[in-house]
Design a protein around this nucleic acid. Structure first.
Lengths: 153, 153
DNA sequence: CTTGTTGCAAACTGTTTGCAACGTA
DNA sequence: TACGTTGCAAACAGTTTGCAACAAG
């Protein structure tokens, strides 16, 4: 964890930004909730517990900054809220998501499943891919079991 | 085109809704700009040309209605704006998009490229897929050519 | 001293909602 | 008449911005 922050600190520094206490706390919150796809408001509330004086605007500005530096990705699952997702160290591509339409849970898939598809797109459409977003909507493992057991509607 | 509207009219009727003039004009606009991924505001302005009395709220309500009936899909490319995209007749899955980071153009891909990937996800993650969203970000054909010719930054 | 950064409040944008008026079965 | 639908304006939610105060090289 510390190493990770160190790493990000350097990235900030290289881009001529400072790692202020506010930014550091925000990063900590992001690291501690890495798989949770927090919204800005979520991040704000969690940061506020550790650093009550912080303002919402600062959180937004920090998230924007980290997005710019490709430290995190801004995602949008269709509700009007942006969510923020730390990139894995050295991850070249954005990972995929399974969004459950029953319970709302979001599972991540790290594997790059799109290698073949991307080759097709690049050659057939002459489109130079830099990133992708793939989200599946459906029913997750747990909800499938629940429905099988109960079959209530 | 008329047949398509007829079809949609039936769908509305079956769901106990009326095809009001406002809704019909909105549909026409959507059909006439089928590949354009219009935002609600875009639709509103185009509808207003044909039917100046219409209100923005009506357009929103119509779009929401059509989304509910799966006549169109609401998409979000990451800017804070929802865009609306008519489903092809009988299309089971949402089509894919190529978003150009240089010129902002959006190209559609009708082919279902995800068959194999979906099989993997369904079996490996026990996730019952009902729909998907796949968007590639990158540089489109035209912009690639432009850069090769000019190489300006 | 200079420049980036912060907190606050106000502004903004896209979207939704309450409501009285309307239109049509 | 009854009920879905409309237009308007106000409300709302998430996000951004202007600005004076602050912090740190």
């Amino acid at each position: 964890m510390e190493k990770r922050i160190q790493h990000i600190k350097e990235a900030l520094h290289d881009a001529k930004y400072k790692l202020t206490p506010q930014r550091e706390v925000t990063l900590k919150v992001l690291l501690e909730n890495e798989s949770d796809h927090l919204s800005a408001e979520d991040v704000f509330m969690k940061v506020k517990e550790k650093y009550p004086e912080i303002g919402l605007a600062t959180v937004y500005r920090t998230l924007e900054l980290l997005n710019e530096l490709k430290i995190l990705d801004k995602i949008n699952f269709g509700d009007g809220v942006s969510r923020y997702d730390l990139r894995k160290e050295g991850a070249e591509h954005f990972h995929h998501h399974l969004v459950c339409i029953s319970c709302g849970s979001v599972e991540e898939i790290e594997e790059d499943l799109l290698g073949d598809v991307e080759s097709i797109v690049e050659s057939d459409f002459h489109f130079k891919i830099t990133d992708h977003r793939l989200t599946f909507h459906g029913v997750c493992k747990h909800c499938t079991l629940k429905v099988e057991q109960a079959t209530d509607d």
